[in-house]
Nucleic acid binder design. Structure first.
Length: 417
RNA sequence: CGGGGCAUAGUGCAACGGCAGCACGAGUCCUUUGGGAGGAUUUAAUCUCGGUUCGAAUCCGAGUGCCCCGACCA
């Protein structure tokens, strides 16, 4: 993409409100705040979000889950059946002109359970899992830290259905592993802890995936012996590590980037969802639900992967792989040559499926372009200037490194970014 | 929801109850071009409603919004 065509701009100064990562995303023009906890995904932020979505969707597909899209506008009746119309405080409730009441989906057990029930009648229809990636709405009393706790956010929610406890346990374990692979791809795995937590209104316990960051709102106790963690909310129940019995904990601030629950028959039973077994008897249906907040993940990566100069995107989620920076010649004599070289590199790299943001903006000083490149945080920066052309080269610098190297122009076509 | 803070130009900040300024941005022109360049010139603002006062950005009340701490959080 040509940077001169990008409708957003970077900002030097936006004050010191909200978290550091959110400030960078705002300054760099990845997101825009509409209201507290409500953000627009600008072109650069949306590109990251799409990459996150693809990574997650691919893992869900590998689990054998089938993707659907449920409505965000959901009738009151479904929530009354489970009692959550009144019990789920974060539910946004709205009324139609006809005085029918609806909730904006905060989670989808109430929708997915009767949906599955329509099709899964026999034990032979199990197990199966379905998921969606959809905007969720939660009436948070206090939205905070930018994307980390929003009132509207994009979430992947997966639901699994089983008639065999062992098989269910196996699936739950596979989801756990898939989640860690997702975090690994995004560079978060080394600072993300599997954490035992309260199950909220769903179940007694759940497992959370907690990424360590000062901007996080949870406190977790990380077992230094085995690596398992316990959320502060249930720490009274577990003075010792539930996995290994050690009491050598490290206290950490963390943000919940995923949560998985064994719902058991909690929702299937209230909807009367049972399967016919081989012997004709009714079998209880076991359910699991598994969530990952995509927008929160975007915020978490910005929060944890950044330095004083700006964002640092892991390659897998970077909006572009390469930031090609064109510097005008001091005397103007080489401008044409510099531009031609840039355009050729721009074309060649894109042919190799390398995403390129090309800073072709005229009249911008070198300093400003460098500052912007650091702020935007593409994994690699490529500079073409009079100085590099003197050596028939371009300069390559990795965003997470300090060194620059000169690469001959003819070799850039095979350079591994 | 309890507590605290804040609300002025597109953004970030100033202004004793007495002419609303500065920087950045944006526009035009000139000079610049390897770490957010310089000059000239233009542009653009006191959240809303009420009160006090000769006079309110400033004081008082209410509302709305935003941020922070806490509580809450599938």
């Amino acid at each position: 993409m040509l940077q001169s065509k990008l409708f957003t701009k970077t900002q030097k100064d936006i004050g010191d409100e909200t978290s550091a990562g959110t400030r960078l995303l705002l300054r760099a023009g990845f997101i825009d705040k509409l209201a507290a906890g409500i953000y627009t995904m600008l072109p650069l932020g949306f590109l990251v979000l799409k990459k996150i979505e693809n990574i997650i969707a691919q893992k869900m597909d590998e689990l054998g889950a089938q993707r659907i899209l449920m409505p965000a506008l959901t009738p009151k009746k479904n929530w009354e059946i489970t009692g959550r119309w009144n019990d789920l405080d974060v539910l946004y409730k709205i009324e139609s002109q006809q005085k029918s009441e609806y909730a904006l989906g905060a989670t989808h057990e109430e929708i997915v359970t009767p949906l599955a029930q329509k099709f899964a009648l026999s034990y032979k229809d199990f197990p199966f899992a379905i998921y969606q990636i959809q905007t969720k709405f939660r009436d948070e009393l206090r939205a905070k830290s930018g994307l980390l706790r929003g009132r509207e956010f994009l979430m992947k929610d997966l639901y699994s259905f089983h008639v065999d406890q062992k098989e269910f346990d196996g699936f739950y374990q596979r989801v756990k592993e898939a989640y860690f692979e997702i975090y690994k791809t995004m560079g978060l795995a080394p600072i993300t802890l599997l954490t035992l937590a309260s199950g909220g209104t769903f179940s007694k316990f759940s497992h959370e995936f907690q990424t360590i960051t000062q901007a996080g709102e949870d406190t977790v106790y990380h077992c230094l012996n085995c690596g398992f963690s316990v959320n502060q909310e249930i720490k009274n129940d577990y003075p010792k590590c539930p996995e290994c019995g050690s009491d050598n904990f490290d206290e950490k601030k963390a943000i919940e980037v995923g949560n998985i629950f064994k719902l058991g028959t909690k929702y299937s039973s209230v909807f009367g969802f049972e399967a016919t077994g081989a012997d004709g008897a009714k079998l209880p249906v076991l359910m699991g639900c598994y969530g990952i907040g995509l927008t929160r993940l975007l915020g978490t990566i910005a929060e944890t992967g950044a330095d004083d100069n700006g964002l640092i995107w892991p390659k897998a989620v970077a909006p572009f792989d390469v930031h090609l920076v064109e510097l005008e010649a001091r005397d103007g004599a080489n401008d044409e040559k510099i531009k031609k070289t840039c355009q050729k590199i721009y074309q060649d790299l894109q042919k190799r499926d390398i995403g390129v943001l090309y800073d072709d903006r005229p009249q911008k000083s070198a300093g400003e372009k460098f500052k912007d490149a650091d702020l935007l945080g593409m994994p690699a920066r490529l500079v073409v200037s009079s100085k590099t052309l003197e050596k028939d080269s371009v300069e390559v610098k990795k965003r997470d490194g300090k060194e620059t190297e000169l690469i001959k122009i003819e070799k850039i076509g095979s350079y591994k970014f």
